[in-house]
Nucleic acid binder design. Structure first.
Length: 328
DNA sequence: AATATTTTCAACCGCAGGGGT
DNA sequence: GACCCCTGCGGTTGAAAATAT
């Protein structure tokens, strides 16, 4: 089981790939496709195991790969998805075209995790550190949850925090000699748009707005997940909830109860929202569940991908409109 | 300029699970 | 059902690059 015969049978090279090896692999796949990976190295004349070829192709040579700095929107999406999916990097990557699971995993482990901690957020649970440290019995982490049991789909309140935007991302052009792919990193939006949403009528995707509406209702129903914090670190980290009615008294109501605020109208970075409560669940009998999955009688029937496609179309809206949700 | 330390990220490893026999 | 082969996933490692001293 899990054996990898190619690596044992013959001498195989390990470590970094040379340009010549890359070229051989590219040429072979261009001509014949990869077919059975275990036979690729032999056919391509490479002293690598099939597994290594596959990895190289998927993570580096495959056409359409974006390389280089993650955009603000991509990071937001990753954080959102991680809150729901945990360390299911391949599923997260599936929502970010051109990004690989490995790349996302690296970003998470090297950057996002650290930044979340600095902001007083437990990267595993997406809860304030003060909350997770306080409890002796650590609640199950998001990564422990099983998406299959949809009646316990976790959804953490949408949250945001400031970052130092004085450092603008450099415009970098990445050049892959094989794919000729270029990626220009967009500039950051203003940081005071944290937690603010685009007007629904401006949204190019009504479906996404509807999903957002459902999520927002969910947050509202279970609002206050992060309230009652006593951590000054937490408070100073400019959290905000996407909690409609109570959060943004000056906001306008959308069609489905979402309030939309003008950028700059919120208090500058202080904690918004005063509800209390804990934990968010999708119950099969809840109107929320049915608002997200109108065709499903039972949460068990819901395909995980449907959930993602619905819930995270939100991200697409943000992406399209260059909005900041989490405010990194 | 030299060295030490930290960060980044490509690649490896082991495991799980599916399909075929 | 047992075994084998293969793919895919997530955790981990370690070399290279970047940064600090």
């Amino acid at each position: 089981m899990g054996r990898h015969s190619g690596c044992y049978k013959q001498k195989v090279r390990k470590g970094l790939w040379s340009p010549e090896e890359d070229e051989k692999l590219m040429e072979h796949i261009a001509k014949h496709g990869h077919g059975c990976w275990s036979s690729v190295p032999k056919q391509a004349g490479l002293q690598r195991c099939g597994k290594s070829c596959r990895l190289r192709w998927i993570n580096y040579l495959r056409p359409g790969l974006k390389r280089g700095t993650f955009s603000q929107q991509e990071e937001n999406i990753i954080i959102e998805l991680h809150a729901v999916l945990g360390n299911r990097w391949s599923q997260i990557a599936a929502q970010l075209p051109g990004r690989t699971d490995n790349e996302i995993k690296n970003l998470w482990n090297s950057c996002i995790k650290k930044r979340l901690r600095q902001r007083g957020v437990d990267p595993d649970t997406h809860k304030p550190l003060s909350e997770t440290e306080a409890g002796e019995d650590k609640p199950p982490t998001v990564s422990d949850t099983t998406p299959a049991s949809s009646n316990e789909l976790p959804y953490r309140a949408l949250m945001a925090f400031d970052v130092d935007r004085s450092i603008a991302p450099t415009e970098r052009i990445y050049h892959n000699p094989f794919t000729e792919f270029q990626d220009v990193v967009p500039s950051f939006p203003p940081c005071n748009q944290i937690g603010l949403l685009p007007h629904p009528q401006l949204s190019p995707c009504a479906e996404a707005t509807a999903s957002l509406s459902a999520i927002t209702r969910l947050v509202d129903m279970n609002a206050g997940l992060y309230s009652d914090t006593t951590s000054t670190e937490f408070e100073s980290s400019s959290w905000s909830y996407l909690s409609p009615e109570t959060s943004h008294p000056r906001g306008r109501s959308g069609n489905d109860g979402i309030q939309f605020s003008d950028a700059g109208n919120t208090s500058n970075g202080s904690l918004i929202g005063t509800q209390s409560g804990s934990g968010i669940e999708l119950q099969s009998d809840s109107s929320l569940f049915h608002s997200i999955f109108p065709s499903s009688e039972d949460p068990e029937d819901v395909k995980w991908s449907e959930y993602l496609n619905g819930a995270f179309a939100v991200s697409a809206v943000l992406q399209n409109q260059n909005q900041t949700l989490y405010g990194f």
